[in-house]
Design a protein around this nucleic acid. Structure first.
Length: 119
DNA sequence: CACATGACGAGGG
DNA sequence: ACCCTCGCCATGT
């Protein structure tokens, strides 16, 4: 029914993209990772990966976000060594995530695959 | 108003 | 696999 569609659109308009991105990040389960683009997609705009970056940069602390569960689409950590890389890796390993010899995560195994989510 | 920026990503060579 | 270009969102200057 297009009634449901209407409600969906209406609901999406009630929150800003940023607010939805925050909600999506908070829903990443323990022991799983999600890419910047995937989060943007789930939040309603797959072209907003860079906005996800900005959110993590500014709101990780304030909103208590599980920022370390966000990596890039190649399955690697985007932070540079000496600037958070080791810390993020430590967090992920602590949750059971495995890195291969080239510090890559198998997204098939550890990638978050939400069936359907409600924002 | 015109850029410059960033923990990005897809596509092409 | 690597490197580069371009498209994107929202903020900051």
């Amino acid at each position: 029914m297009w009634y449901d569609f209407f409600i969906l659109i209406l609901y999406l308009c009630m929150q800003s993209l940023s607010e939805r991105i925050v909600k999506v990040i908070k829903k990443i389960p323990r022991g799983k990772v999600a890419s910047y683009g995937q989060i943007a997609d789930l939040a309603g705009n797959r072209m907003a990966a860079r906005q996800v970056v900005r959110i993590l940069h500014t709101l990780s602390e304030k909103k208590k976000l599980p920022w370390y569960r966000v990596i890039n689409s190649k399955g690697t950590i985007s932070l540079k060594p000496g600037e958070g890389y080791e810390i993020q890796k430590g967090h992920l390993i602590a949750e059971g995530i495995v890195f291969d010899e080239f510090d890559r995560v198998d997204l098939e195994r550890f990638g978050w695959k939400p069936k359907k989510l409600t924002l």
